[in-house]
Nucleic acid binder design. Structure first.
Lengths: 357, 357
DNA sequence: ATTTAGCACTCCGTTAACACGAGTGCCAGC
DNA sequence: GCTGGCACTCGTGTTAACGGAGTGCTAAAT
């Protein structure tokens, strides 16, 4: 059932040790108590006496896979122990059909992208009873649909633009000269005719290029338009952000009941940048990605695990979603859950799949 | 210094008892320990022996103003005790000048309304070390500046409108028939020419009126425009919402260190409706409003106090801001703080005061 | 050579007993 | 009406004892 893992310590890390590690982790995930040799002897179907198991446990402890809180307690998996479990020992359970239908229902009838993101996050947290997080889709990969300028006071201009995912963005820019409403209208018309339907990234590049090389060919109106477009699509405009729900679920877990830890965690949530950076890393790898405890490198997440998956629209990775919970979580259920949710969210965001009523 | 409070129990609730209640509350707010008769005897400048003070305390306890956690502990103010203190005994301290300048600076250079709201909330929480909350300005009182329609798929139309506070709102509506981009443009032009500059509430009413009485006078294009406007400004569109910051500050207070309480509180924060309802009540009364402990009627807030003030733009109350903390908070500092912040936020939001760079 | 049984040991968690300090209520005297 | 004194109550912190759970080690059994 459990194959050997080919490492240098092959004579100790044989099938039996792994089997025992597996049942140890499973049992610990279930009831949160350090698990002792007697319990393990009963739980595993290899008929071994507690004494034998104690020997194996000592080996596992030497390898840093388990750890005992104090001399006469059972063993608890370490981060490495969890890692080995997740990578090689885990038997993932297929998603329960009732959860699948909940996901399907919820995501299929979301009106716009913002909706879908919120729904996805809420479903993640509700169905897992942990915290759900979904990053907003990256703007690079979406297309410009419509742009519009509106004069505020003097040289302040409100830029409104709509992407093909039916998201409305807006930003205030400061122009170098005063524009009349008619001029602004004209500029918008020009930009719409040229750039509508192209990706924002492409627009950004095109704008820079036009400004550099083709100034003499353009009339003043076109030049103004392109200049404003550059201001509007300025790089730092893309507000990285995410939707987080069910944080309060985390308050129920005993491993996070320490007020200082909890405070750090929630502060990390509201400061956002750290979490965003972490999620960005997950976007690079496709498929499900897992950070266990300190692996994330963020102190606030020391006692948490993060299970993520990137989601894609038209075969282009645009964001990440995931679940945050204590390291002691039911990975075998969470992993397929996150996986499926990512796929469904991607499908829901696909512009081709939006069906009019 | 402390005048008598005219109630039926005038012979017990004389100036001296009130003086003692005052110093008791002040001392309890300072160090959070139940305060005993000896401490009170030293703290108050009326020279009384502990024994005398014990008698007074017994009276105050009969009146339900103080309470002792157990037989041989000092006294702690009850909700009524805090209430009496806040209403009649409190000597508010003027805002520290460094806090005032922080507020001024922060709020004066906010770019748009959303900015200002966020800054206000952040300043409230940072400077008080508690949680700060600001409701978004109510849409009724703001003016329409520009409206725009954009066709999505089939009969789904994206409505974008801008208010004079430089806020961009958007909503997806479903029309009964298919419109061409030109028709949508025409409709938008019509609505802009008629309704631009009028308050949203007025627009809503005018639209309904027009549809009822004047159908024969209008051509089809105008009719379509007005119909769409009605959908766009549909009543339930106004998403009540608020900005909350510094929730994590609340995790430091011992009275909220109970995990269940804390969880309830944070859940109330994320569900929002309860909090919104509470804040709505505060909007009716102008000036500073205070809910102490259970007074709010929301179980989640049982051990919290809420100090709020409505804020106004052009003499019209549009929202509420406030501070949430434990009942044991420094009211004498928080009250003027909230008061001033509300006034400054109102000023910052005033469209006349927006200065171009 | 591996597994097992037995045994001494360690450590946690709970309970009880105890002293201490802080504060009260009440009474008698000023 | 105020005050000092006294007995009493209650929470806190310390200590000791004890049972339970689990380990490590050693010696015997397979």
């Amino acid at each position: 059932m459990v194959a050997e893992v080919g490492v240098s310590n092959s004579q100790v890390l044989n099938g039996r040790s792994l089997q025992l590690l597996k049942t140890l982790v499973e049992r610990y995930i279930n009831d949160g108590q350090p698990v002792g040799s007697r319990a393990l002897s009963k739980d595993s179907d290899l008929n071994l006496s507690p004494a034998t198991i104690r020997n194996v446990m000592a080996d596992l402890e030497d390898l840093g896979l388990v750890h005992s809180p104090h001399t006469s307690a059972g063993r608890v998996p370490t981060v490495s122990g969890y890692r080995l479990f997740v990578d090689s020992l885990l038997t993932v359970k297929p998603l329960e059909s009732k959860d699948l239908t909940r996901l399907h229902q919820g995501l299929s009838l979301s009106e716009d992208a913002g909706d879908a993101i919120g729904v996805a996050s809420r479903l993640l947290s509700e169905l897992t009873q942990m915290a759900g997080v979904v990053t907003l889709p990256k703007r690079e990969q979406v297309c410009l649909r419509h742009i519009e300028f509106l004069s505020l006071s003097h040289t302040r201009v409100l830029v409104i633009f709509v992407t093909d995912e039916q998201e409305v963005h807006n930003k205030i820019i400061h122009t170098s000269k005063l524009f009349s409403p008619a001029e602004l209208q004209q500029a918008a018309n020009y930009l719409n005719s040229i750039y509508s339907g192209r990706s924002l990234d492409a627009v950004r590049k095109a704008v820079v290029k036009e400004l550099q090389e083709a100034q003499e060919r353009m009339n003043q109106g076109m030049l103004d338009a392109v200049t404003m477009a550059q201001l509007a699509f300025d790089q730092n405009n893309q507000k990285d952000d995410y939707v987080l729900t069910g944080e309060t679920n985390l308050m129920g877990f005993s491993e996070l009941s320490d007020m200082d830890r909890l405070k750090n965690l929630f502060e990390a949530f509201s400061q956002k940048q750290g979490v965003i950076h972490l999620l960005d890393q997950c976007m690079k790898a496709d498929g499900v990605q897992i950070f266990i405890g300190e692996e994330s490198g963020y102190r606030a997440f020391d006692h948490c695990s993060l299970v993520t998956s990137s989601y894609s629209v038209s075969n282009e990775v645009v964001g990440v979603l995931g679940v945050i919970g204590p390291t002691r979580m039911a990975y075998e259920k969470i992993i397929p859950f996150v996986d499926v949710t990512a796929k469904l969210l991607g499908a829901a965001l696909n512009p081709k799949s939006t069906t009019p009523l």
